[in-house]
Amino acid sequence: MPTLPPDPLMPPKPPMPWPALAAIATIVLLLATAFAWAAGWIGRDRLTAPRLVDAIEGGKPYAGFRRAHSKGVCVAGYFEPSTQAAALSRAQVFSQPRTAVQGRLSIGGADPYALDAQARVRSLALLLKTENGQEWRMAMNSFPFFPVSTPAGFHKQLVASRPDPATGKPDPAKMAAFLAEHPEAKRFQAWAKSAPWSSSWANTAYNGVNAFRFVDAAGRERFVRWSMEPQAPFEPLSEAERQQANPDYLREDLQARLQQGPLRWNLVIVEAAPGDPVDDPSQAWPENRPRHIAGVLVLKTSQPQATGQCRDVNYDPTVVPDGIALSSDPILAARAATYSVSFNRRERETARNQAPPATAVTAQEAAR
C-alpha cells in the first residue's frame, strides 16, 4: 500500500520531549527489575524458592527425583466421607459417596536411595479428585508440628544442619547459633529424640501441620488442621530392628500388608479456638480442641514411584477445592513455591535425559 504524503494543513507532530522518554524508560526498567527480583535473578541475599530448593539439595541433587522426600512408592485407593463431614465444609469430597485417591508414601530426606530405617520422618501425599473435577492435594508428615515458624528459619536450619566435610556431622557452633535465633526448633528436636519410631507406613499418623479454613454451606468459616490417623495399631521400631532392617523394609512391609487387604486411616479434623496460632505451624494446638472424624482413607494398591501414577504429580498442598481455603501461614506459601521449583527441575532433567531411565530405577529397587 503506497505511503500517503504528509498533509500540508497539518503541522508536523513534535518529537517526544526527553523527560517523557526518560520517564517511559524508567517505568520499563522498574518493571524489568521487579520481574528479575521476583525470579531471583538479582538480590541474591533475598530468600527465593530456588535458593530454598538449593539448600534442600545440599549441593548433591539427584536428577529426575523430588528434591525432598525423594524415596517413596505410589499408592491408590479411595476416600469415603463420614455423615458429619458435610456439616464441616461444603467441599464435594464430603458429600459424594466415594472419591478416587492416588498418592505417595515416602521418607524424609533428599536421597532416593536412603535406608528406610534411618529416616526419622515418614510422609503421605494425596490427590483426591471429585466427580466435578475439583482437586484436593495434601502433603502430610509424621511429625506433629513444623520445626520453625518462617521460611527464612527453615532455610537457616537446612544450612546449619549441613554436614561438615571434615566430620560428616553438622557443625555444633552453627547449630547452636541457629537454635539461639529460632528457639522454637528445640521442640522439634525434643520430639525427634523422644517419640517412638513407627514400624510401618501403615501404622503411622500423618499430620497436615498447616492451618486451613473450612467453609460450610452457609458460608461459615472455621480454622482447622487435619491428620490421617491409622486404624492399624501402632507398633514401635526398636533400635535393634532399625539396625537390622533391610534397606527397603517399609516398601516390603507395605506390599505384605496390602496382600492381606486394604489399609485404612481416619481423616481427623481439629478445630482451632480463638487465639490459637493459625499462621504458625511450629506451635501445636491444645489437645482439648474439637475433633471430628470426617471420613476414611482406604489404600488398596502400591506401585514403584518410577512408573506409578504419582511420579508426575506435584502434591502442592495449596491446591484445594471449593469449601476449603488457605490460611496466611507463610510456610504454606513457601511449600507451594518450593514444590513447584522441585517439580520443574526434575521434569526438565527427565526431558533432557539427565535422569536415570524408569526401568533402571525399578531394576535397582528390585535388586535390593
Rank of each mutant, 00 (worst) to 15 (best):
L4K: 05
P5N: 00
P12T: 01
K13F: 10
M16R: 12
W18Q: 11
V28E: 13
A39H: 01
T48P: 05
R51I: 01
A55Y: 06
K60C: 07
P61L: 11
G64K: 06
G64W: 12
F65P: 12
K71I: 07
V73Q: 01
C74F: 08
Q92H: 11
G103M: 02
G109R: 04
A117C: 01
V121G: 01
S123T: 12
A125R: 14
L128G: 11
K129P: 05
W136K: 03
A160L: 03
R162F: 14
M175P: 00
F178I: 14
W191S: 02
A192R: 00
W197V: 00
W201V: 14
A202W: 11
A202T: 15
N203P: 13
A205H: 10
Y206W: 10
V209D: 05
R213S: 13
A217W: 12
G219V: 10
R222N: 04
R225C: 13
P233D: 04
P236H: 09
A245K: 04
N246T: 01
N246A: 14
Q255I: 01
R257F: 02
V278K: 00
Q283I: 08
W285R: 10
S302I: 07
Q305Y: 03
D316M: 02
G323T: 02
G323V: 03
S327E: 03
I331L: 11
A336P: 00
V341P: 06
E347Y: 04
A360Q: 10
T362P: 03
A363P: 09
